[in-house]
Design a protein around this nucleic acid. Sequence first.
DNA 1: TCTGGGGTCCTAGGACCC
DNA 2: TCTGGGGTCCTAGGACCC
Length: 348
Amino acid sequence: MILHIDLDQFLAAVEVLRHPELRGKPVVVGGDGNPRRPRQVVSTASYEARAFGVHSGMPLAVALRRCPEAVFLPVDKPVYEAASAEVMSTLHGLAAELEVWGWDECFAAVHTTDAEVVAAAMKVAVLARTGLHCAVGIGDTKLCAKTATGFAKPGGVARLMRADWLDVMGSRPTEEIWGIGKAIARRLSALGIETIAGLAEADPDDLRKEFGPQTGPWIGGLGRGGTDTTVSSVERVAVGRSRQVTFESDRVGRDQIEQALVPIAEGVTSDVVAEGRVVTRVAVTVRTKTFFTRTRIRKLAEPTTDPAVVAVTAVALLDRFELDRPIRLLGVRVELAPLQESKPDEPG
DNA sequence: TCTGGGGTCCTAGGACCC
DNA sequence: TCTGGGGTCCTAGGACCC
């Protein structure tokens, strides 16, 4: 059986744990915590803040307008990482396999005749060890379990099996499926497919033609409750790492842009090198004041661990942009060589 | 409502080669 | 006379997710 565990209002809940006086109040976590500074958004709003219409992704300034009495707090990544690690280690002890999906959710594979009992045990264990509440979805595919969690929130347990998928989900729009966003929903609609039931019975050839050889069949499978049943504890090896910065005020002119770009390139490189990784490609992203966003990428002549090489490459990539507009964001992504299998008879 | 940061995977098209 | 077929590598961009 597959369980999906999702922590309730994770960032806000962690903040309430260390600031108990905030319990029951509207709490908004985002940016540097100052809603009067522009270009910052809400990462997580507590349920009390959501009641005012505040939600993730919303500009902090808008959140302030909707809920002036909210307490605004800066994002404190290390604290959330530590809390998340404690949750995951607790859950790992109760599952055969545990696959972590970000800070606040994971899939668990469990061998049991009563998944509800396991789910309840997980909730109790996580609460006892960390003080955090979670919702648990039970299913026989990842999609079913994840969808069930939606019905379990906040803080409950729910089950959705593939056999019941269409009864429960069939009449809903395709966009409610995890994995189908606005763009795909629109293209499905153009094919005459509006509901999940419609997607379930769609002609596989139509889907293949519209979405390609991988994506087409995958989307069709989602319409029937998904097919992915794999849950693996093996830590995923990152294929890339990126760092991007939105400036509070725009950078203008090649000099300013270069000056801002170099530390970003060097920083992201030192991070991956410290983890024993090697850079193979360098990408630069530029976003103008008007939100026009472009990326340029270059493969290195040879893989490197030298931050200066990455910085020089990033600066060279700037030549491939028109830098005649004010720039609000710069980003550097490094793509990484696969980890080498270390052979037992060789050092390193 | 003036729009963050960090990821993954897929597709398409051009270059180049046999 | 203007044209095949297959394969790989590379880059750009789209889409989705937390």
